[in-house]
Each structure stands twice: as C-alpha cells, then as structure tokens.
C-alpha cells in the first residue's frame, strides 16, 4: 500500500491551513482586517494576475479566520459566536483638531495671577429638604431668598420694602452683568481673531484704538457752541483734563542751569536768522570795513591784485 499519495495530499491540506510568508501578516481582529506587507512577486504577478490576487486574498482570509477561531467562543442557536477584541489599528481623525477657545477676560487674569479654577457642581445639598437641588434654574438654590416665606428686614428699610422683589432684582442684575460680560468676551475674541489675521499685535492695537476713541470723545465734548460748558452731563462722565504742564524745579543748581542756557544759546547761533544772513553774520570783525581799511578805500579787487601780483605772473593760466 502506497501511503505517500495520501501523505502528500494531507500535507497539501495542512499547507492550505497554515500561511507562511516572509513578513507575517498583520491581523486586526477588531476591525476584521488583515494587512499583507509582503512585496509583490513580479513573476507570478505578470504570469497570471487573477490567480495571484486570488491566492493573496485567500492567504489573508485564511489567516483572519484562523485568528478568529482562537478567540473565546460562546455557542448560540446560529452557531458559535466569537467576541471581537478592541481594534489595534489607529485610524486617522476624520475632522481637524478643534481650535483652542479664546480666553475670557477673567481667564486671562486668572492665568497671569496663577489662580486655579475648580468647576462647581450643578447640584448643591439642601439641608432643609435633605436633598440635592439645582444651583440655578427651575427651583434653583439661587432663588431661595425670593421664595422663602419669612425674610429678615433690615432696620433702616422703607415701609414698602419688598425683600423678595429686592432679591429678584439683584439676581436679574447679576444675570444682566453676566450677559454683558459674555458679549464683551465674544466681541473681544472676534476682534482678536480679526487683528491676528491682519498680523498686528493685539494688545497694542487695542490700546491704540482706546486712545483714539478717547481722543475723539474729548474732541466731540468740546465741539459744541459753548465748547462743552453748558452741555447736559451724563452719569459717570469724568471731567475733561488737558495736558498737565511740567516745569523744572525752581531750585536747580546754577551750574546745570547755566550749561542748559548755554546749550540753548549755541543752538540759537547755529540756526541762521534772516537778519543775520543779510547783515553778514554776527562776528566781531566787520569784514567789509576791514577790507576798506586795508586797501585804503580802493576795494577788495585792488587788494587782491596788490597781494597776489607776484604769483599771477609766475602761474599764468
């Protein structure tokens, strides 16, 4: 009896079950994915493309199913069911990372001062009710003073003092303030985004804008017929102040004052006035008079001829 055929057939079967490659296949059972990193065998690829692809696919599926059968299995009506493990392949994000939110004014301040912030719980413990109640909102704890049946009235209160209305008013004011600050933060963030795109430093432009606004406001305040004297005053309007003049102290040492004055004098000498230019300088020597005296009234041309006479003969041009 020749068993070699049977053995060969068995071996071929075994081969089909175990896939052996140069680089082992990567299996991610979580995603039911197999990745074949082996380079393509050019010869067989060119010879028969379909067959090559079929073989590669079969190897991959064989490895995947083999890995599936190693997972813990529970029997069910439809057959054994394996629980897939968590996927190991890292998939890239579908959307870009969110941009960091612009800091609010308080957050900026807290950051510079190193103040750390712990988030408050939405619920607070109510001792009377022995229950957790919302901090704000419907039946919120912040309305406790408005709804309580008995309220202590301050000694100096009016006759028509309504404590619940007072508390409600204060709460509404806090809300309005918060809303205002929120809007301001939004506006600031928007402005920062705008100035960042135009590539100017935000802080300086902000300061500059504020200065310009103040300047414009000051101009408009004195641009009425009475130069702002009889205008209606607004609440919290500050008095306009001009530029404060600054003088040196009266008791400067005489030497520094002298040097200061001399510096001013030398500066004055440097800039020629119209008169000086006309009268030919502020010199002690009167050149015109000196020439007249030296040439005995004959003039500068005669003087030049007299003094340069010898030279003129030698160096004829």
């Amino acid at each position: 009896m020749d068993v070699s055929d049977i053995l060969a057939a068995h071996e071929a079967k075994q081969k089909a079950i175990v896939v052996e490659k140069d680089i082992p296949l990567e299996v991610d059972a979580g995603f039911l994915t197999v990745t074949d990193l082996n380079p393509i065998d050019v010869e067989s690829y060119n010879e028969d493309l379909e067959d090559y692809l079929l073989n590669t696919a079969r190897d991959g599926v064989q490895t995947l199913i083999a890995s599936l059968f190693q997972l813990p299995v529970t029997p069910s009506e439809d057959g054994p069911v394996a629980k897939l493990p968590a996927p190991t392949t890292l998939l890239p994000r579908a959307k870009p990372l969110p941009k960091p939110k612009p800091l609010t004014k308080w957050e900026q301040f807290a950051k510079t001062k190193g103040i750390s912030h712990s988030k408050k719980d939405k619920k607070v413990w109510d001792e009377e009710k022995q229950d957790w109640v919302d901090r704000w909102g419907w039946k919120g704890a912040n309305k406790a003073t408005e709804v309580q049946w008995l309220t202590e009235v301050p000694k100096n209160a009016d006759v028509d003092f309504d404590p619940s209305a007072q508390a409600r008013k204060a709460r509404k004011e806090r809300m309005a303030k918060n809303e205002k600050q929120y809007q301001q933060n939004l506006a600031r963030a928007q402005q920062a985004a705008g100035s960042a795109s135009s590539s100017t430093p935000n802080a300086t432009s902000n300061v500059q804008r504020k200065r310009e606004l103040d300047k414009t406001l000051a101009t408009t305040r004195i641009s009425t017929a009475s130069m702002g004297k009889f205008d209606k005053k607004l609440d919290g309007e500050k008095k306009l102040r001009g530029v404060k003049r600054k003088f040196e102290p009266a008791e400067v040492s005489s030497s520094t004052e002298k040097s200061h004055n001399l510096a001013i004098l030398s500066k004055l000498d440097r800039e020629p006035s119209a008169k000086k230019a006309k009268s030919g300088g502020d010199d002690v020597l009167n050149v015109r008079k000196a020439v007249r005296f030296a040439s005995k009234g004959k003039g500068s041309a005669a003087l030049a001829r007299q003094s340069g006479g010898g030279k003129g003969k030698k160096g004829k041009r």
Binding site: F247, P249, A250, V252, N261, L265, L268, D282
Partner: peptide
C-alpha cells in the same frame, strides 16, 4: 516762580541778542 522752559528761553534770548549780540553769554 519757575525757571523758563526751553521755548521761553529761546524767545527771551533772541530778543536780548537783538540788543547785546554775543555779549549775552
């Protein structure tokens, strides 16, 4: 009473220099 500012000094000196010239020093 205070010292003159630079502008004021200039005005005064130019006026005086009109009479005394360099002797202002």
């Amino acid at each position: 009473m205070r010292p003159l500012t630079e502008d004021e000094s200039k005005i005064v000196f130019t006026k005086l220099a009109n009479y005394v010239g360099k002797n202002l020093i």
